[in-house]
Design a protein around this nucleic acid. Structure first.
Lengths: 201, 201
DNA sequence: CTACGTACCAAACATTTGTTATGCACCTCG
DNA sequence: CGAGGTGCATAACAAATGTTTGGTACGTAG
């Protein structure tokens, strides 16, 4: 009963076009016609795969979540603080792919702050990311690289904060943040954790 | 020759309305009609003060820059690391005003990443902020609170990164980041700086 | 008091953008 | 080889939004 077999291929083309549009124009520039133009097609093609604008936005966010997942598993296992450093470096914009990913991510916050549903999704993503970072922190405590009384939750929050804050600065001034400097900053941050006092609260 | 004297007052009303709209709806929701509705007026009033949408957006960003300036001067002078901690706490969302300010700020990044002019403006603002933070870092080095070989530029970048990353997480999950926790996290970060190694680069 | 310019409203207008409808080509199945 | 459904273009439609215009009220200058 179905007609063609390259449905999945086309859908992948669509995803690529959506990705490029958002990475370059932000979510403000994400429009049916922009996506269509990006792949030299008609708006009919876009609506054929995404029945509404909301579905398009949802798909863009799913793409972002999916790509960040694959990038974060890039270095699967390293011990303790080295693992934390690797996890941070998996996110930081050290190559064009990661630059695009972070641009999409940061752009999405405009919508996510205004839309409760998207905001909640973002909150959950932060939760999962912090949980993953916390795993590395706990390993570091177990290895004696961090003081035994360290609050692993707080350290995970700090690591996530440092990472995303660095991402933002780098996105707006790529020339000032070449790969070598990013690596040095991340290394410095992780080393600094080793001597942090246990949380007095 | 001019007509009325409450021009400035009305303009202040306009600014207030623009601010509320952006804080609640983001820059995506910043529209002539939304601003007009926010102050129970007509779109004619809005266009009378802002001839175009671009002017409206520019004004919203000027407002954000202005308010962040006044808030950062809130605690004018403290010595060394204590000054750095105060400077960070001046930005973090510890009250409704600062929550609104940060929401506006984060929302603006969607537009700023897509528009080269706005992006450049954001870059310059980061530069100025980092310069101010660097002042505190240099004072801390002079007071012996940081090692003499510390790279003050890198520490300023790290402080800005930690701050904005913490802001973002707090905005999406206010319940998880009450004032006390924010203060504890900031204090922990600043204390951790004291023992960071000099940058080997 | 008249003239004129400012402040503003109300509504029309043009553009952008999301959505829907129509039609055609092609592929698969019977 | 015909029937029906998929994939997609074309284009009309509708809603939202930026922009422009005509008109009114009012205050100040002369």
């Amino acid at each position: 009963m179905p007609a063609r077999g390259d449905h999945d291929a086309r859908r992948r083309d669509l995803s690529e076009a959506v990705w490029r549009v958002v990475a370059e124009q932000g979510f403000t520039g994400l429009t049916m016609r922009a996506v269509a133009a990006e792949m030299d097609a008609s708006t009919g093609l876009v609506t054929h795969y995404f029945p509404s604008k909301a579905a398009l936005v949802r798909h863009a966010l799913e793409l972002a979540a999916e790509r960040v997942d694959t990038m974060e598993r890039h270095v699967p296992s390293a011990p303790g603080l080295a693992g934390l450093r690797a996890a941070i470096l998996d996110v930081v914009p050290v190559d064009p792919e990661r630059v695009a990913m972070n641009r999409v991510w940061v752009s999405s916050w405009d919508l996510a702050l205004a839309d409760p549903t998207l905001g909640e999704a973002q909150r959950e993503r932060y939760d999962r990311w912090r949980a993953r970072l916390r795993g590395h922190v706990e390993a570091a405590v177990a290895r004696g690289e961090l003081p035994d009384g360290a609050d692993v939750d707080d350290v995970a929050v700090s690591a996530a904060a440092f990472t995303h804050g660095l991402v933002t600065q780098a996105l707006f001034d790529p020339a000032a943040f070449p790969v070598a400097r990013l690596e040095g900053l991340v290394a410095g941050f992780v080393e600094g954790l080793g001597s942090q006092n246990p949380n007095p609260s």
